[in-house]
Design a protein around this nucleic acid. Structure first.
Ligand code: FES
Ligand code: FES
Lengths: 145, 145
DNA sequence: TAAAATTATGTTTTCAAAATCTTGTGAATA
DNA sequence: TATTCACAAGATTTTGAAAACATAATTTTA
């Protein structure tokens, strides 16, 4: 559904949202550990997110990543679009070039509703909402060992 | 959502269902053309489907692939399971090792419902149903040019 | 023997991951 | 105050593996 990069990106965003604030940044190593992601690969993803201004970063000693109030308002959809583009919005489940009413694949009508729900899922919840969820300690970003 | 192989497999099954019967087989070339798939890649997929008895094949002159009555009863889910395994049934949308109620990712509850619908979509419709849809000529296996 | 699937093997492309090099920043210090 | 140094992100390149696609040889059978 999402690319590996995108999965890591979402987890990283939620992780940073929970663990950091304006004056308390968090480094790439911790982010990688906290999300079960390979460090170098995660570093690259964080660059993308930062370049696209979905997250703030500070270089140098005591530097790291953090999210401010407005960052917390971003939806999962914004992350997905930044990393994977709009494939989720335009893809046909059977791989036709475009998904459309004019040239629908046999599964189109069934899939249409599912797609709607997927989009709702990623658009209605903001990073901030997920931060709260994680705080409640009933949700996880990695498997318990 | 599905692998490329799986997309091709589903299209091929629907195509053969529509175009063939017991005494009227259809060759790999036609299947590839009719589904916009690379011929040799599709050949391999057809082998898989045939080995797993989701479709019948006959070698030699006038040979080819065809589906009998019982083949038509297969659901899309059977194809998906044959090609992609059960990832659709077990995967976590954020890539956790396992999707479970005990160790849910932040999106688990939202995704749970979507997953249910996806499974319903692939289980409730049989290949035969899609054959009828295609016959109605309002659905397509490839893009109109 | 010719037509067709089957099998085996090879190549290319894409994606995930790792490594390395560059740039910017804060703090110590002379 | 200017210099330097270490720390941390940013950017680029390389490697690895898997998926997608292609070629060729083999078997089966009308
Ligand atoms: S055309 Fe296939 S999902 Fe819309
Ligand atoms: S744990 Fe992530 S979808 Fe169920």
């Amino acid at each position: 559904m999402f690319s590996k990069s995108c999965e890591y990106a979402i987890k990283a965003m939620i992780f940073v949202a929970q663990k950091s604030d304006e004056s308390n940044r968090i480094g790439i190593k911790e982010i990688a550990k906290g999300t079960d992601a390979p460090e170098h690969f995660m570093a690259k993803i964080m660059q993308d997110l930062s370049r696209r201004r979905l997250i703030h970063s500070v270089k140098g000693p005591n530097g790291g990543f953090y999210m401010d109030k407005s960052d917390l308002k971003n939806s999962i959809a914004n992350i997905v679009k930044a990393i994977d583009g709009d494939v989720i919005y335009t893809d046909c489940v059977l791989g036709l070039k475009v998904c459309s009413e004019k040239n629908p694949c046999p599964v189109h009508n069934e899939y249409k509703e599912i797609k709607k729900n997927i989009i709702k899922m990623i658009e209605k919840n903001s990073i901030g909402d997920f931060k709260d969820k994680l705080d409640s300690a009933r949700y996880f970003l990695k498997n318990n060992k």
